[in-house]
Simulated scan of single mutants.
Amino acid sequence: MFYRIEQFYHGLFPRISSKDLQLVHSFLSGAPLFLFESQPPADQRHAIDVALDLLQNQVHLSFPQKRILIQAALLHDCGKTRYPLKIWQRVYIVLCVKLPIPVQNLLEGLTTFQALSLPLILAQQHPKWGAMLASKAGLTEEVIELIRNHHAPHSEAGKLLYIADNHH
């Protein structure tokens, strides 16, 4: 519970230090960096926290493996820029994820109540949109696949990203 309150606070008042930006610039440049910068500050903060978690906990990975994983961490939610969500919609999504799958599916299907269905549809589709944006930005296929599957990982690296994402 306290974790979610803290997460909500950081979503309202994200702080990104110069050290955080150095980290971002050491892994992203050009179009991928622009893609990172196009995210709202709360999503940037979240992405940096996921990347830091991975850097601290995955010391056994080689530098090329870390590079791919950190690039994906910094951009895993970039698909959300396609249809930005308001803070209440983000809270609603977090609450709905705790509901049984049939209830989530019911809420997604309430097309006459778009206020209830649209945030869930956007949350479900953002990995696909993020992969598309990452492809256009010229990222490697490995990074694109990690972004595309960050909610349903198929690889060991994907599982690491999934775990770190859920910590933050």
Results as ranks from 00 to 15, higher is better:
residue 5 I to Y: 11
residue 73 A to H: 00
residue 19 K to C: 07
residue 20 D to C: 05
residue 44 Q to H: 03
residue 105 N to E: 14
residue 5 I to V: 14
residue 14 P to I: 02
residue 107 L to T: 07
residue 166 N to S: 12
residue 125 Q to A: 11
residue 44 Q to K: 05
residue 61 L to D: 03
residue 150 H to Y: 04
residue 42 A to Q: 12
residue 41 P to Q: 07
residue 98 K to V: 08
residue 75 L to I: 03
residue 83 Y to W: 12
residue 97 V to P: 08
residue 105 N to I: 09
residue 93 I to S: 00
residue 148 R to Y: 05
residue 112 T to L: 13
residue 118 L to C: 08
residue 124 Q to M: 12
residue 160 L to P: 04
residue 69 L to V: 04
residue 55 L to K: 03
residue 68 I to K: 09
residue 123 A to E: 07
residue 5 I to L: 14
residue 40 P to D: 12
residue 19 K to F: 08
residue 140 T to N: 08
residue 76 H to S: 02
residue 57 N to S: 14
residue 164 A to V: 01
residue 133 L to C: 01
residue 12 L to A: 11
residue 17 S to Y: 04
residue 47 A to W: 02
residue 31 A to T: 11
residue 141 E to Y: 06
residue 24 V to E: 00
residue 125 Q to I: 11
residue 88 W to K: 15
residue 161 L to W: 00
residue 107 L to K: 07
residue 151 H to P: 05
residue 67 R to H: 10
residue 46 H to R: 02
residue 131 A to V: 03
residue 33 L to I: 07
residue 99 L to K: 08
residue 13 F to E: 08
residue 76 H to K: 03
residue 165 D to W: 01
residue 129 W to T: 07
residue 119 P to H: 00
residue 104 Q to A: 06
residue 38 S to K: 13
residue 126 H to M: 03
residue 78 C to W: 02
residue 112 T to Y: 13
residue 53 D to S: 14
residue 165 D to I: 05
residue 142 E to R: 07
residue 118 L to W: 10
residue 20 D to E: 07
residue 57 N to A: 11
residue 40 P to N: 11
residue 92 Y to W: 09
residue 112 T to E: 14
residue 136 K to R: 13
residue 74 L to E: 02
residue 109 G to T: 07
residue 126 H to C: 00
residue 78 C to P: 02
residue 93 I to A: 05
residue 102 P to K: 06
residue 105 N to F: 10
residue 49 D to L: 11
residue 64 P to L: 05
residue 96 C to T: 15
residue 166 N to D: 10
residue 60 H to I: 09
residue 103 V to R: 11
residue 152 A to Y: 15
residue 83 Y to R: 09
residue 26 S to H: 04
residue 44 Q to D: 00
residue 157 A to P: 05
residue 18 S to E: 15
residue 20 D to K: 01
residue 20 D to P: 02
residue 112 T to D: 13
residue 76 H to C: 01
residue 25 H to P: 04
residue 107 L to A: 06
residue 4 R to H: 14
residue 139 L to N: 01
residue 132 M to H: 13
residue 143 V to T: 04
residue 115 A to V: 12
residue 166 N to P: 07
residue 4 R to F: 14
residue 63 F to P: 12
residue 39 Q to L: 04
residue 114 Q to N: 12
residue 138 G to W: 07
residue 136 K to F: 10
residue 54 L to C: 02
residue 3 Y to L: 14
residue 127 P to C: 02
residue 112 T to S: 13
residue 131 A to P: 00
residue 50 V to P: 01
residue 53 D to E: 13
residue 98 K to C: 10
residue 103 V to Y: 10
residue 107 L to I: 11
